[in-house]
């Protein structure tokens, strides 16, 4: 197991190097640079020498290979550079937003799991009954309704009916849990609903498959109670595909809540990503892509390890 883990961790290195090369050079193909956005983006009579001086200060006048070498050297030494927009360390910019994004992702995952597993199970067990139909309508609606649109409805509903809105600035949960939760519960619910719909449908279809397996029939033939058949014999296997989906969705939520963050005015990673792209803030974009690559790779690894824990047939060597 440890050798497997070590091998997977070592495999991360070429993957990340590949991501780094692709990200760096693809960004340089995109037209425009941050200096012009910063100094001319809102108009103004900025002379060419001011633009050139700022480009030189940011190192954008250096040959590409030199810039790439500097960045790679920084990555190896965990020096991710400074944001070309704010002049602040990239790590500082990301850390400021990561806490919020991580919390929303965790809360949305909890919401999704709490809704999806019972609903998916009930839907499978009561297949083609009115209960199943209700659950399926609920989940199809969850897939069809974009999270940001649901978020907008939530906000407008709170405003119209209660004349109340969630706080507009973030307070960490360890500073003021009530302020924190009253801001983040709404995006977590809006995102969690879609997330729950995806997982519930996966649980339902997976459980339906498993319930047809021979070993389930055997368990029933032995006279095992139906509840035990489901909980002890079926659920473990039925949850495996759902765990993959939960893992991937969680990783996506760290940086993918672009519009939802804007709707709720959340200062998260998704919004930072979009702003960095709009400004051509190369250093920030590169580091954010690397961060998300690490998150996806790590989550995949955790999912694989969870498979082994849940399914005794899977053993990593």
């Amino acid at each position: 197991m440890l050798r497997y883990l070590g091998r997977r961790l070592l495999l991360m290195i070429p993957t990340l190097v590949g991501v780094a090369i692709l990200t760096f050079f693809m960004l340089r193909v995109v037209p425009g640079d941050i200096v012009e956005v910063k100094l001319r983006g809102d108009g103004g009579n900025v002379t060419a020498d001011v633009i050139a001086a700022e480009r030189a200060r940011l190192g954008l006048d250096q040959p590409l290979i030199h810039q790439f070498g500097d960045w790679m050297l920084g990555l190896v030494t965990f020096d991710f550079g400074v944001s070309m927009w704010t002049g602040r360390p990239v790590v500082e910019e990301i850390a400021l937003r990561l806490e919020l994004s991580f919390q929303v992702a965790v809360m949305a995952t909890i919401v999704a799991v709490l809704i999806a597993i019972p609903l998916g199970t009930i839907s499978a067990l009561f297949r083609n009954t009115w209960i199943d139909y209700v659950v399926r309508i609920f989940t199809i609606a969850g897939l069809a309704v974009p999270s940001f649109w649901l978020g907008m409805l939530v906000i407008l509903g709170l405003l119209a009916w209660f004349n109340w809105l969630p706080p507009i600035t973030y307070t960490p949960i360890y500073v003021d849990p009530i302020a924190n939760l009253s801001q983040l519960i709404w995006p977590a619910l809006a995102v969690g609903y879609r997330y729950a719909a995806v997982v519930a449908r996966m649980v339902r279809s997976s459980l339906l498959e498993v319930m047809k397996e021979d070993y389930i029939r055997t368990a029933r033939a032995k006279g095992v109670f139906e509840r035990l058949v489901v909980m002890r014999h079926a659920m473990g296997n039925a949850l495996l595909p759902a765990i993959t989906v939960i893992g991937l969705e969680f990783a996506f939520l760290i940086g993918g809540l672009v519009v939802t963050e804007q709707v709720f005015n959340l200062n998260g990673i998704g919004r930072l990503f979009v702003q960095a792209v709009a400004r051509n803030d190369f250093m920030l974009i590169q580091t954010l892509v690397m961060l998300l690559a690490v998150v996806f790779i790590t989550v995949n690894l955790i999912v694989d390890l969870t498979y082994a824990a849940l399914d005794p047939r899977i053993r990593y060597k």
Binding site: M152, I155, L156, L159, L165, P167, Q262, V263, N265
Partner: peptide, 14 residues
């Protein structure tokens, strides 16, 4: 970063 969020906050008195 988004006009709708700003408008909501303006309407809500935030």
């Amino acid at each position: 970063s988004q006009g709708a969020a700003m408008l909501n906050a303006l309407q809500g008195g935030q």
